[in-house]
Amino acid sequence: MKTRVKKIIDKYHNDKGFLVPILQDVQKEYNYLNREALNLVSAFLEVPISQLYELGTFYKAFSLKPRGRHEMKLCTGTACHVRGVPLMKDNIERILQIQAGETTPDLEFTFETVNCLGACALGPILVVDGEYHGNLSISKTNRILKKLGKKVKIDEES
């Protein structure tokens, strides 16, 4: 782990000014801000661990807990909101039995809301593992979740 973290830091020339990008890369490498890695960053760059913890909890892009295998991001931008996204949010939360921002205990799903993804014409939008699903409806969320292996009651006709 030491060499992997060092490599990331070297990429930014040991510059503390790139703390946020460095943490982004660490998160990418380990899927979350793993504690050991944070301690290494703190030691290499001589930044107090409290500052890293602060960054890790301040920015939405960071997660201090392991993330799920599938990443679901629901756009809650204004355009999607007025097109009824809250209903779909409730639906996904009910099926996954977690709140937005959480990961299922089996580490299968991380469900998050994000602000405007900039594809408002297709709203509401759900991004699943990087793939965009536009013109979302409740039944569409059901189908997507079913495809990913969730048991959901589905209306076959729609």
Binding site: P48, S50, Y53, E54, T57, F58, L64
Partner: peptide, 18 residues
């Protein structure tokens, strides 16, 4: 710098790391 803040907005707290 043993302590810092955690979270933001209304969830902000004075916090020790982790």
């Amino acid at each position: 710098s043993a302590i810092g803040f955690s979270g933001r907005g209304i969830t902000r707290k004075v916090a020790t790391p982790f």
